[in-house]
Deep mutational scan, measured.
Amino acid sequence: KGCNCRRSGCLKNYCECYEAQIMCSSICKCIGCKNY
């Protein structure tokens, strides 16, 4: 399942991608994603 966080840059544990240690991709559609 994808993540669509808006404010944290996908760097907080409530973002599913970050919590699962998945990098930003087409699945993880965080706005302004900084989780490289």
Rank of each mutant, 00 (worst) to 15 (best):
K1V: 00
K1P: 00
K1M: 15
K1L: 07
K1D: 00
G2T: 03
G2L: 03
C3V: 01
C3M: 07
C3G: 07
C3E: 09
C3I: 02
C3W: 01
C3Q: 03
C3L: 01
C3N: 02
N4K: 05
N4F: 12
N4Q: 11
N4I: 05
N4L: 07
N4T: 08
N4Y: 07
N4D: 15
N4C: 08
C5P: 06
C5G: 01
C5T: 03
C5R: 02
R6H: 00
R6S: 15
R6F: 08
R6W: 12
R6Q: 15
R6G: 14
R6T: 15
R7Q: 15
R7V: 09
R7T: 12
R7K: 12
R7M: 15
S8R: 08
S8D: 10
S8A: 08
S8C: 02
S8V: 08
S8Q: 10
S8F: 04
S8I: 14
S8N: 04
G9C: 00
G9R: 04
G9S: 00
G9I: 06
G9Q: 05
G9N: 06
G9F: 00
C10V: 05
C10A: 08
C10G: 08
C10I: 00
C10M: 02
L11A: 13
L11Q: 13
L11V: 05
L11I: 04
L11C: 02
L11R: 05
L11N: 06
L11Y: 01
L11M: 12
K12S: 08
K12N: 03
K12R: 04
K12I: 04
N13L: 06
N13D: 09
N13S: 08
N13M: 02
Y14R: 12
Y14A: 06
Y14N: 15
Y14M: 14
Y14S: 12
C15K: 06
C15G: 05
C15H: 03
C15M: 01
C15D: 11
C15F: 01
C15I: 00
E16D: 02
E16A: 06
E16C: 01
E16L: 03
E16G: 09
E16P: 05
C17T: 01
C17N: 02
C17L: 06
C17G: 07
C17P: 05
C17W: 02
C17R: 03
Y18E: 13
Y18H: 11
Y18Q: 13
Y18I: 05
Y18F: 09
Y18N: 13
Y18V: 06
Y18P: 10
E19D: 06
E19C: 09
E19L: 06
E19M: 08
A20T: 07
A20R: 11
A20G: 13
A20S: 11
A20D: 01
A20E: 09
A20K: 05
Q21L: 06
Q21H: 06
I22V: 12
I22T: 13
I22N: 15
I22M: 03
M23K: 10
M23Q: 11
M23G: 14
M23V: 09
M23N: 03
M23I: 02
M23P: 08
M23T: 03
C24M: 04
C24L: 04
C24R: 04
C24W: 01
C24K: 15
C24S: 07
C24A: 08
S25F: 01
S25L: 03
S25C: 04
S25G: 13
S25W: 03
S25V: 02
S25M: 05
S25D: 05
S25Y: 02
S25R: 05
S26C: 00
S26G: 13
S26N: 10
S26T: 09
S26V: 08
S26M: 04
I27Q: 14
I27D: 13
I27R: 13
C28A: 06
C28E: 08
C28W: 01
C28S: 08
K29E: 15
K29F: 00
K29A: 14
K29H: 15
K29T: 12
C30K: 06
C30H: 02
C30I: 00
C30T: 03
I31Y: 05
I31F: 08
I31E: 15
I31V: 14
I31N: 13
G32D: 03
G32C: 01
G32W: 04
G32L: 00
G32R: 06
G32A: 07
C33T: 08
C33F: 08
C33Q: 04
C33D: 10
C33K: 09
K34Q: 09
K34P: 14
K34C: 13
K34R: 13
K34D: 15
K34A: 14
K34E: 14
K34H: 10
N35S: 11
N35F: 01
N35V: 04
N35A: 14
N35L: 00
N35P: 10
Y36I: 15
Y36T: 14
